[in-house]
Computed example of a mutant assay.
Amino acid sequence: MAQFRSKKLDLGCFINPKIIRDHTKRKTFEQFEPQRQALRYLIRNTSLPDWVRTKAQFELRNMHCYTRPTQIKNRCIMGGLARGVLRKFRMARFQFRMNALDGTIPGVKKASW
């Protein structure tokens, strides 16, 4: 009988498939970033032989797409929306407004003048 281990996501928010995928992409990118930087250094180093640079290009091209920084998208941690996300708070505009009005975001209050 196979035993399955459940990995716990350290998100602390509402979880939907888009958020899980984004979390997976971020973890994969973080894990493979040093290897990508090393390969990119080899490719750009013109003093190396051509076969070494070509091999590095081949390895970099064959890495999983989740290791690329362009795959990471800013998503709202509350609802998973990808548009209108405030980077500092990682929330969509509407969620930010609702939380700010409720007073759940420290240091944020409605402006009045």
Rank of each mutant, 00 (worst) to 15 (best):
A2W: 00
Q3R: 07
S6W: 05
L9Q: 05
D10N: 15
D10C: 14
D10A: 15
L11W: 10
L11H: 12
G12K: 15
C13T: 13
I15F: 06
N16C: 14
K18R: 13
K18H: 09
I19C: 04
I20Y: 06
I20W: 05
I20K: 13
R21W: 07
T24R: 15
T24K: 15
R26L: 12
R26E: 14
K27R: 13
K27F: 06
T28A: 13
Q31W: 09
Q31T: 09
F32Y: 14
P34F: 05
Y41F: 07
Y41G: 12
N45G: 03
N45V: 03
S47C: 01
S47Y: 00
S47R: 03
S47D: 11
L48Q: 03
D50W: 02
V52K: 13
R53Q: 05
K55Q: 10
A56M: 04
Q57T: 04
F58E: 09
L60S: 00
L60M: 01
R61K: 13
H64L: 08
H64E: 12
H64F: 04
C65V: 10
C65M: 07
T67V: 12
R68L: 10
P69D: 06
Q71C: 11
I72G: 03
I72E: 04
I72V: 13
R75W: 01
C76K: 02
I77P: 00
I77K: 12
M78R: 14
M78G: 09
G80V: 02
R83Q: 10
R83H: 07
L86Q: 12
L86I: 13
K88M: 08
K88N: 08
M91D: 01
A92R: 12
Q95L: 04
Q95G: 03
M98K: 08
A100Q: 07
A100P: 00
L101G: 03
D102M: 13
D102C: 06
G103D: 08
G103M: 10
T104F: 04
I105C: 07
V108Q: 06
K109S: 14
K110G: 00
W113Y: 08
